[in-house]
Every structure is written in structure tokens, then in C-alpha cells.
Design a binder for these strands. Structure first.
Length: 424
RNA sequence: GGAGAGGUGGCUGAGCGGUCGAAAGCGGCGGUCUUGAAAACCGUUGACCCGCAAGGGUCCGGGGGUUCGAAUCCCUCCCUCUCCGCCA
């Protein structure tokens, strides 16, 4: 959520900034509603003040043993007038609240213009795509060799966009998780957390999935008020919801492995082959709550932490700075990490690292006590995949394959694979 | 699933329907004392909204109701805890 006071006093510039990401703000309607709200609020407060005064004097008169009936007659209609004005105020406040909750974050002024990924900016590149003197297989073909990636089984058990992993691939998948958790936990200073994979609507609102993107989520059948998390960002960031952090407890850094569930509504026919886009996948997520002044550098550091994983695994990648129109709803600035996939002969997203500034914090009332002022202020939140495990597995299969169809185990993962240097 | 208890400020925890935003303690901050620290003592210390300010208003789990007036009464929902049963 944007700062309503900032929005009110800089309506035009906010509208222009939001326009960069394709959001059209009806400035006139907004101003009209907000002014109506303000005058109603003043009116309601005056009535409340009057009521408070009168009630107080009635209390005194009664205590003094006086006849209070004349006073009661005097305020007879006060309650009704208050109720009516308050009712209208509530309605206007509700529509303003809804509006605020559906407004995306302001894009960082320093990111490129553009309405699609075509306008994202490549900021750096690491590693060389491998050259093969044979036709490289994609991960679907590699996984089929020993039926260790079984899409038919996934379809039978659940449906399309599900997979069953077996044997060496299943173990490699687990090894990746362990490896990532260890690197971020032991070397990058993140605290490992384990969280619920079902959350309530308040949590989804806090990080921005609700109210606008309900169709992207899976909800539990029956009368249970739970949603399946689309990313660990949701539960982990919401740890800070409704709390005021001491300065001494800042910044907070968490690493969390979790499954992620996404309906993929609107992506029919996209990435239907393989395990690039699944309804269920696993991810190791990095989340930070930081002092506002430190969030820009924190994003650079966090992105670097995700990159470390790719470097240790020897996977070639590039870093993209997303343009205003390609970012997620809550983000102010986002770097995508794209890994090289020989099966597709192109770079594919494997991590997305974002600074949300105070946008999520404002929604979830996540605050810190600023020692300068002694007052609670919204803190800044960030997160990034470090990394998407399924896509990382795909990248390893395709980049580490050899002519005979075998797949080498990256050096860094061998301790997690019982020392094996090949998958099979 | 059955039975009971409870949800109050950063935390613990009092609160006859009427000067209660709320006692007390802890924690935090400032000070006295001390070479320094601790202890002790004194003072201070909620969040949010409108407003340049003065000031006003809201908030005692959420929502609704009764009343001139609700933290206190009623209804309802949510959550936490204890005991029994079942169970990974």
C-alpha cells in the first residue's frame, strides 16, 4: 500500500509514476472521494465530541443527584445523526481502502520504461553456455532415460503440470535444497525458518497476493479459510505483521525452504513441456526486513547471495533489471536471475529478487522503532528466490549432460550425494 | 469430537456502565549516586487518524446490539490455553 498522505499531497506525480507500470489512476475521482471523506470525518468527529461532552455532564449531574431528564431530551437525536454520518463515512472509507489495496507499488525512478520483458535491461552476465559436440537433450528426455522424471505418473496422481521424481533425480532435488539452505544459513547469515504452507487471507493481503490475484492461488476445499502459499515469501514476510521491531533486532534475514503452489491461471499453453512451470514446485526463499535507509544496498546483497548459488553450481546466468511494466504488483525494483538452459537454447528465469520498500510493510503494519525519532515507522521488506529448486534441477541436468546421456554431479553437490560424481 | 478457562499498552497483569487511554510491575529512555559498571532512588514512557498549530477523534481479539454514555451488559465470529478422546 502506498502512503495515503503522500498520495494525497502528490497525486499527479504518483499517477504518473503508476502509469509507468500500466496502472491508470483516476485522479479526479480519487480527489473527490478523498475530500468527501475528509469533510465527513470532521463532521463525525464534531458530533462525537458533542456526544462525549454531553454524556460527561449527564454523568456528573446524575452523581450530584440532579434531574437528568432535561439533559436526556437535549441529546435525543444526537445518536441518530451520528449514526447516519458515520455510516456514510464508513462506506467512503471502505471504497478508498479497497482502492488503496488494489493500487500497485511505485516503480523505482531509476528502472527502465517498458511494458514487457523485451524492455528489461541486462546488467551483467556470468559463465559461458557450454558447447556440446553432440545434440544436447532437454531435461524431459534426460529424465526419461531411467524414468526418473515421470510426467505421466504426475498426471495420473494429480493432473497436468505435476511430476514424480525418482532415484538420483529425487536425491539431486533434495541435495539442492540442503546445499542452498547451508550456504545461505552458514555463509550469508540468514536464519533458517520452517513455516506453514497454508495461510489465512490476512497473510495473503499483507504481501499483496490478495485482493487482486485470487485466481492465481489455490484455496482449500470445504469451509477452511486457508490458501496454499505460492511462495514462502508470504508466511515468512508476514512474521513481521503487526509487530514493532526494536532497532537492535534489525535487520532480520530469513531463509526458508518450502513447496509453492500456483494455479498458473492465464498461462495455458505456456511451458507445457517439462517441469519449468508446475502447479507445485519447491523453492528456497530469502526474506529480509531492513531499515528503510538500507534497503537499496540490501537488494544488491540479496541478489548476490542468490547468484552465489549459481556460481557454486557452475551454471551460466545473466542478471536482468526489470522494466516498470514487467514487475510484480508489490515490487519497486526487481532483478531477475536467468539461467542458461541448453534444451531451450536460452536464458530462463530462476530467481526474482525484489525490494518492496514500505509497500508490504504498510499493508501488514510491519514497523520498527526509529531511534532517531523514537516513533514506529514502516520498515522495508525484500525477498528473492535463492533459488527455485525445480528449475535449478532442470539447469543442472541440461548443462551437465554428457554424450552418453549421463549427468555429472556438480562438485558443490557431491557431499550431499554420497560422493557420487554421476547421477547414473 | 466432548468439557472448561481466557483474549486489555513493547511484555506481564488489574480494572463497581459515567473525569479510564486505562492501576501496578517489567522492559525502554533521562537523571542522581559511582573512577566506571551494577544496585538503589527520582522522573519519564501507547498506537493510529484529521490539522501548520492549537486542538479534536478512534483504538481494551473482529463484527453487531443495548444505552445519553460500553474495556465493563447482550449476541455472534475468530483465536489461545487446560482436561478427556482420537491421532502423524
Amino acid at each position: 500500500m502506498l502512503d495515503p498522505r503522500q498520495l494525497r499531497s502528490h497525486l499527479e506525480s504518483h499517477a504518473q509514476a503508476l502509469g509507468r507500470r500500466g496502472y491508470v489512476l483516476d485522479v479526479d475521482l480519487y480527489r473527490e472521494l478523498d475530500e468527501r471523506r475528509r469533510s465527513l470525518q470532521v463532521q463525525v468527529q464534531e458530533l462525537q465530541n458533542e456526544r462525549n461532552q454531553r454524556s460527561k455532564s449527564i454523568g456528573k449531574a446524575k452523581a450530584a443527584g440532579e434531574d437528568i431528564q432535561p439533559l436526556l431530551d437535549l441529546v435525543a437525536d444526537l445518536g441518530d445523526r451520528l449514526k447516519a454520518a458515520d455510516h456514510e463515512l464508513q462506506q467512503i472509507q471502505n471504497s478508498l481502502d479497497t482502492w488503496h489495496m488494489e493500487m500497485p507499488n511505485l516503480p523505482d525512478p531509476e528502472i527502465p520504461d517498458g511494458d514487457s520483458e523485451d524492455h528489461n535491461l541486462e546488467v551483467r552476465r556470468w559463465g559461458e553456455p557450454p558447447r556440446f559436440d553432440f545434440r544436447p537433450l532437454d531435461h524431459v528426455e534426460l529424465g526419461a532415460i531411467h524414468t526418473q522424471l515421470d510426467f505421466d505418473a504426475g498426471a495420473k496422481l494429480a493432473g497436468s503440470r505435476f511430476v514424480v521424481m525418482r532415484g538420483g533425480i529425487a536425491r539431486l532435488h533434495r541435495a539442492l535444497i540442503q546445499f542452498m539452505l547451508d550456504v545461505h544459513g552458514s555463509e550469508h547469515g540468514y536464519e533458517e525458518v520452517n513455516v506453514p504452507y497454508l495461510v489465512n487471507a490476512d497473510s495473503m493481503r499483507g504481501t499483496g497476493q490478495l485482493p487482486k490475484f485470487e485466481e492465481d492461488l489455490f484455496a482449500i476445499a470445504g469451509h477452511h479459510p486457508y490458501y496454499l502459499i505460492p511462495t514462502a515469501e508470504v508466511p515468512v514476510t508476514n512474521l513481521a505483521r503487526d509487530v514493532i521491531l526494536d532497532d537492535a533486532d534489525m535487520p532480520q534475514r530469513f531463509v526458508c525452504h518450502s513447496p509453492c503452489f500456483r494455479s498458473e491461471a492465464g498461462s495455458y499453453g505456456k511451458d507445457v513441456r517439462g517441469m519449468i512451470r508446475q502447479h507445485q514446485f519447491e523453492k528456497v526463499e530469502l526474506v529480509q526486513m531492513v531499515r528503510p535507509a538500507e534497503s537499496d544496498e540490501a537488494l544488491e546483497a540479496l541478489t548476490g547471495h542468490a547468484e552465489t548459488i549459481l556460481q557454486r553450481l557452475g551454471l551460466p546466468y545473466r542478471v536482468m533489471l526489470l522494466c516498470a511494466g514487467d514487475m510484480g504488483f508489490s515490487a519497486a525494483r526487481t532483478y531477475d536471475l536467468e539461467v542458461w538452459l541448453p534444451g531451450q537454447e536460452r536464458y530462463r528465469e530462476i530467481s526474482s529478487c525484489s525490494n518492496f520498500r514500505d509497500f508490504q510493510a504498510r499493508r501488514m503494519q510491519a514497523r520498527w522503532r526509529n531511534p532517531e525519532t523514537g516513533k514506529p515507522e514502516p520498515l522495508h521488506t525484500l525477498n528473492g528466490s535463492g533459488l527455485a529448486v525445480g528449475r535449478c534441477l532442470v539447469a543442472i541436468l541440461e548443462n551437465y549432460q554428457e554424450a552418453d546421456g549421463r549427468v555429472r554431479v556438480p562438485e558443490a553437490l557431491r557431499p550431499y550425494m554420497g560422493g557420487a560424481d554421476y547421477l547414473w
